[in-house]
Nucleic acid binder design. Structure first.
Lengths: 354, 354
DNA sequence: ATGAAAGCGCTAACAG
DNA sequence: CTGTTAGCGCTTTCAT
């Protein structure tokens, strides 16, 4: 492997000079600069950042820990983060936890040993966050994404889940559904809890008493949507609408309903969090709370790099991002026969008007 | 930051000894070993791999270059690769090219400067592969995924595209469709070309003359599927079936058909490469050539690490992975009204029988 | 079995 | 402006 010394020798200068032209640290005479450039080209020298890191305490690598990139919610987040990172010369080291704290622990450890400058974390549902604490104490910046790590004071970029759930359910109520079931996420997860809260708020506002049997706890995964969908289909007093707290569960729910011959929206209305996998268009019949995932990743990465570079200091920040309500016809019984009407997508704020 | 020296001091041993207990390089007396362990715990010492790399020429990081993680075909590949990598102590540094060679070039460069041990590459469609050549000459192992980099002799894990296309189209023919259109991928891409080849082979076998106007070139992206779908819908002599060469374009095609009021399969049959985003179940009506994406990533990563570790030597390997044909009813006109029949999924080999 | 010491490739003072 | 030099944190001989 070619090193800086060889380049220096070849160009007949000192390694300090080579370093200087490479990094622009100091002014170098055009003459030498040219010779160095030539040597670099001839030797195909590739400056290595690894040893550099020993001096300059930066690797320009960010860890990105996600539950599962296979969940279509996350790739967009990753793109958002990557695009910002790449612009600023950072690379992303990514890993999936499958929601297992144990794995999260190993990953954090692996990232620390590689000396990443910071970590973007969509924390697994668990109260044991000692590893996060430890990392932060060691000076590694952490920005939480989508969900916070419980009991740790980090920067965070989160969706305004309460609001999303609230508006979504309110929409159902306004559309004249009053018997509304909910399929929640795993309630130990902050986001799931908040969406549930939004649901309850909306019911309370409308003075609707929540029905026990219509509160079904899922785990954000397809299987649970399927299982609970079957349960709903079998219910003697079936709700007229379901609010589903994420996209994967909605996929499962739709399968279950199809299997049971329950039609949407004729027999039951659906409104859900998350675009379904593949973008909304294919499923434009669904009414969904759309999360600006790309922006979530993008904002989080920017904050993280600002911290790393010292451009951002002070107490930790929490950014709440507003979701958007996309109106399909899964929540309008009379629209059942519609053929291919485009869904309207409005900013949530504007939806507040009836 | 705690360093190995401080640990050594604290434990009252030399840094060499600490290193030895850490890496198990040499036998250390239980006594000292215990003291070292204690010191490490007290100081919360986190061995860093960065300086280690200066001696041991390995970073245990693999680069993974994909066109776009947002394309639902890739997350599974990434999981496959990551799972294998993580097992063996490697981390993945990922980046997306958006099919732009220029960006690919920058990424390769960034990865090289971080001294990754090897690169998993789903190459962008381009003939200029000097950067790949250069990387390989510099001793960085490259394994191509899904598509090869043209003109470079690397290991590769590819789908058997010709076979997939062939079987899929043959299935259409057996189902009595003879007027078959194709929406290809970008033909400068090997995979697109091969699928097209499979299409042609199947027609030739059935002695069907290909119709010029039914050969539509797309670019694997949704928009092109939509555009070409409209074109098909407008055609005076409309084909009775379409073979679509990837999932994203099928999404577009379905949209276009819906917009034009063309029903599938009553008006036109569809068979496609790739599960649609969200898993097959939601779209189980579609007949698809299913790629074992997880396995592709998994195999590629294993080969790469074997190369890196010298467990695999010799000429470059090409693994061809067999796809699976999943029969839906999008390719059976009479099944149009079916409500929720499960799709049958058979191994391709068994499909060879009529 | 353990310690001392010489680098790995690069950066950053510091002299000149 | 340019060269010299002293590390960065760790591994790895090589003596002991």
């Amino acid at each position: 492997m070619t090193t800086i010394v060889e380049v220096a020798k070849r160009a007949g200068v000192s390694m300090g000079t080579v370093s200087n032209v490479l990094r622009g640290t100091a002014r170098v005479s055009p003459n030498l600069r040219k010779r160095v450039a030539a040597a670099i080209r001839q030797l195909e020298y590739y400056p290595g950042r690894v040893p550099a890191h020993l001096k300059v305490k930066q690797t320009c690598m960010l860890g990105m820990i996600l539950p599962d990139i296979t969940n279509p919610f996350f790739p967009e987040i990753m793109r958002g983060a990557e695009d910002r990172a790449f612009e600023r010369g950072y690379l992303l080291v990514t890993a999936n936890t499958d929601e297992q704290v144990n794995r999260e622990l190993q990953i954090v450890s692996a990232l620390r040993s590689r000396r990443v400058d910071g970590i973007l974390l969509a924390a697994s549902a668990c109260n044991d966050t000692r590893h996060i604490h430890a990392a932060m104490e060691a000076g590694i910046h952490v920005v939480c994404l989508d969900r916070t790590a419980s009991g740790v004071d980090t920067d965070a970029v989160l969706l305004d889940n309460v609001r999303g759930g609230h508006r979504c359910v309110r929409h159902l109520i306004h559309a004249n559904y009053r018997d509304i079931a909910i399929i929640t996420g795993p309630l130990q997860l902050q986001s799931a809890n908040e969406r549930f809260q939004g649901f309850k708020d909306a019911l309370r506002e409308a003075k609707i008493e929540p029905t026990r049997a219509w509160i079904l706890q899922g785990d954000y995964r397809r299987e649970s949507g399927y299982r609970l969908g079957k349960k709903i289909a079998r219910l003697r007093n079936r709700p007229s609408a379901v609010f589903v707290c994420n996209g994967m569960m909605t996929v499962g729910l739709l399968e279950a309903l199809e299997d049971k011959g329950v039609r949407c929206p004729e027999d039951i209305a659906i409104a859900t969090f998350d675009d379904l996998p593949g973008g909304s268009t294919l499923h434009r019949r669904l009414t969904t709370v759309v999360q600006p995932s790309y922006e979530i990743g993008s904002r989080a990465a920017s904050i993280l790099m600002d911290r790393v570079e010292g451009k951002l200091t002070g107490p930790s920040l929490t950014v709440r991002i507003a979701p958007t309500l996309s109106l399909g016809d899964s929540s309008h019984a009379e629209a059942g026969k519609s053929t291919g009407s485009k869904s309207k997508r409005r900013s949530l704020t504007s939806v507040s008007s009836r």
